[in-house]
């Protein structure tokens, strides 16, 4: 037991338990549904995960600083539409430019959020509730209530989601999930090992202390919003690639799904704790449950009720069992520390 404690930190317990729950969920559905372990099911879940995960990573950065970004759904919708419009007007835009456009537009929108939150000292929930409506309004004004049709898009983006980068055991690695995994890994490293990442945790744990320690909180918070916006822009690109037909209602309500996934992934809504990896597993868990329930076809109308109940259960488990485990962990840590002290004093 003690040796285990050396290798696993308290935060990692949460991710391990999430992985166990995920395994249990997959095992359960595998028993209930025939032909569950197929490449088709896997690809469907992977594509869904990819879209939400990219946005959830950005949301995690924002939530870590004790803020929330409710405007992500509207940013995804706007960038998807804007990019689709640009692509249908000049079809010779290539992949890199398209991604750059999407990320740039998203980052600009995130910058507006960030500036108002960090330098205007307006609570983030107020700002992003407002921009949720404003960006959606921009989309409607820009589109003139038209929609982007799948056939207007250039060929490369139509085939992009179904390309296979790497194949093994019948499981393909397709571009969209690859992007999501890449983004997740990059930001996991950023959060764990860079000054910026550690500062985000510091700000979320105690804004006053962070300020006193000389951390430029405002700039950091603004940057978190910019990244969230940029990743939502990337999500907009993926949304366009996956769905193809973009209406003015595109990605409406996505923000609540993302926040739910982040919360299930063990990111504290009051900031300061949680990891990108956890949020990623949260997304996988929620998407798996959602798509498997649809696949189960016992009654597709049960999906939302079960999902809501599941989120509640996950949070309850997190609050109680994790609280208890953490207390246990820290108590033994304390005991070890005090015994070390005794040895030193002798």
């Amino acid at each position: 037991m003690r040796r285990v404690r050396y290798f696993i930190r308290v935060q990692q317990l949460r991710e391990i338990s999430l992985l166990l729950i995920l395994a249990a969920v997959i095992y359960f559905f595998g028993r209930e549904i025939e032909d569950y372990y197929t490449a088709r099911m896997y690809n469907r879940i992977a594509t869904q995960v990819a879209l939400i995960a990219v946005i959830a990573v950005g949301q995690t950065l924002v939530v870590l600083t004790r803020n929330i970004d409710l405007s992500v759904g509207s940013i995804v919708g706007f960038t998807a539409f804007y990019l689709g419009d640009q692509l249908s007007k000049n079809p010779n835009i290539d992949l890199e430019t398209a991604v750059a456009i999407a990320v740039g537009v998203g980052a600009t929108m995130g910058l507006v959020n960030g500036l108002i939150v960090a330098y205007g000292r307006v609570p983030s929930i107020v700002v992003t509730l407002g921009t949720l409506a404003i960006y959606r309004g921009l989309l409607v004004e820009y589109s003139g209530s038209q929609s982007i049709q799948f056939r207007q898009l250039p060929d490369w983006i139509k085939t992009l989601p179904s390309e296979v980068l790497y194949e093994n055991f019948g499981l393909d690695l397709r571009p969209l999930p690859a992007i999501a995994i890449g983004v997740m890994l990059v930001f996991q490293v950023v959060l764990l090992y860079t000054i910026f990442g550690r500062r985000l945790y510091a700000i979320g744990s105690s804004p006053e202390a962070a300020e006193l320690a000389g951390i430029p909180s405002r700039r950091m918070i603004m940057l978190a919003f910019v990244i969230s916006g940029a990743l939502s822009g990337l999500g907009g690109f993926m949304y366009l690639a996956r769905i193809g037909t973009i209406t003015t209602d595109a990605a409406r309500g996505l923000e609540l799904q993302v926040v739910a996934a982040v919360v299930v992934g063990g990111v504290n809504i009051f900031g300061g704790s949680g990891t990108v990896f956890g949020a990623f597993i949260g997304v996988i868990l929620i998407s798996t449950i959602e798509l498997s329930l649809i696949r189960m076809q016992i009654n597709e109308f049960w999906k939302d009720a079960l999902l809501g109940a599941f989120i509640m259960v996950a949070v309850l488990i997190d609050t109680f069992i994790m609280g208890w485990l953490r207390a246990l962990w820290s108590r033994t840590e304390l005991r070890r520390a005090s015994s070390v002290q005794k040895v030193q004093s002798i």
Binding site: L256, A260, F301, W302, K303, D304, A305, L306, L307, G308, A309, I311, M312, V315
Partner: peptide, 8 residues
């Protein structure tokens, strides 16, 4: 969670 569950 309630928002999702009650709608469900």
């Amino acid at each position: 969670a309630g928002l999702i569950a009650y709608r469900g």
